[in-house]
Write a protein that binds this DNA or RNA. Structure first.
Lengths: 242, 242
DNA sequence: ATAATTAATATGTATGTACATTACTACAAT
DNA sequence: ATTGTAGTAATGTACATACATATTAATTAT
């Protein structure tokens, strides 16, 4: 673990301070409510200015990991750990974390013309084909999600890739595309016959429907994703602060 | 609209700068991609230091409203507007915004003993009664949500309050309780008979189910809220960044 | 024309300093 | 015992300043 700052490192001091703070946050005593060292002392100990340390603390406060109070000091927020980053675990990682073995029931890849909404989102002409991927996944005995993904042609996917590997990892390593921003719309629907069959439920039965718009670092669209989740098999958690 | 800074105001300069920036962001030309005035000039124009202005800009960058690039300048993020704050509009405000007239179908207030989970969340003994509020709301011709709220006794609600007024506004003004953090769990359910009747749908039909844990500034629990939304009447939007 | 170099301009990093505000602590006065 | 008051320790606000770095634009050399 890193607990000191290297002034010669190319990594900015505030970034180094941030990782040190994240390590502190992970410590049990701070998790249990112990106040962190105060800004002035800590800045001195790390041999950086208070302003620089503050830059790091601010980021973590914005993220909701730390809570500051005058006179009282700075503490780790109750129930913090890694709530935010959870959003960015892949499906398989998340399932692994919950101890659920997963099975891929169907996996189908094809090239299709985008409808108007999709062409619009991707900012391409409607005669430009896009890669469509459909898959059904779930527990070995029970499929519980039906996904449809469309990928922007700019990425350069051929359709012959191994889609069983974690997707965003693949995009990052092989295609240098880093998914950074995701806008999602979640609603409840009655299942149509085709979806109901895939999920092995009754037509008209409840499903959670999630639309997902994914962007890269430059705010460029890279994926449009539709997910139909069997009711009660999936809980979406959100944390928001004002 | 505010476009200048009052150095005598008790409102911190960086906070004033922030609202000015939010106004700029709302401007059409900046929405369309025009770069904002650069930091040094803008700081001079507003007669504040660059550091102070940067404090304000940073916050908006963290929120995902602004994007900075060296040499190029700072721009409004694509599709920004007010995505984050939307989360914190009251039900009635949100409906007003969408031009939907609302009607309160049922409103029922009572004192009940908390179940174990609730007592645990509120950190109170199970023999301490809590205020429960149930209500059904929707369009004049169509109820589409059934809410159940439990309020922490610490707040001091009597049950005789006028619950037709915006709730969080009331808590803030009359009870000095500022709801700051909300943790939510969203899933799809099949409606039970009682809920189905209230929403005028078939038993077993799809509903969006939202659990909401609300905390005040000191991270103390203040409200536990359950919401059953008629399918397709409610879309939950989330934006997340990593 | 093309490529390499340089200059200009924006944000990024970092420091030192000063005083304000908040809220807890301890002590004194009632 | 309660209330008031002063001290103090933490974060909060704000400034001036300096140099680094990335990226575009302009210039120069090939």
């Amino acid at each position: 673990m890193k607990y000191s700052i290297d002034h010669k490192s190319p990594i900015p001091l505030h970034a180094q301070a941030e990782t040190i703070l994240r390590n502190l946050i992970a410590d049990e005593e701070y998790q249990n409510g112990k106040v962190l060292p105060n800004e002035v002392d800590l800045a001195n100990k790390l041999a950086i200015s208070r302003t620089t340390l503050r830059q790091a603390i601010n980021k973590l406060v914005f993220e909701g990991l730390l809570i500051r109070k005058k006179r009282t000091g700075t503490k780790v927020a109750q129930g913090a750990v890694s709530s935010k980053s959870n959003n960015w675990l892949s499906f398989s990682q998340e399932m692994k974390l919950r101890g659920i073995p997963i099975k891929n029931f169907e996996l189908h890849v094809s090239w299709v013309f985008p409808d108007e909404a999709l062409a619009n989102f991707f900012e391409i002409k409607p005669d430009r084909k896009v890669l469509k991927m459909e898959r059904v996944r779930g527990r070995p005995d029970e499929p519980f999600v039906y996904f449809i993904s469309y990928f922007h042609p700019r990425i350069g996917l051929t359709g012959d890739e191994d889609f069983k590997r974690p997707l965003y990892e693949m995009l990052e390593n092989e295609y240098s595309i880093i998914a950074t921003l995701s806008k999602e719309e979640i609603s409840a629907h009655a299942a149509d016959t085709s979806t109901a069959n895939k999920l092995r439920i009754q037509t008209g039965g409840p499903v959670l429907f999630r639309k997902r718009f994914v962007f890269d670092q430059g705010e460029r669209p890279i994926e449009y994703n539709l997910g139909y989740y069997k009711a009660d098999s999936f809980v979406y958690t959100v944390e928001s602060r004002r």
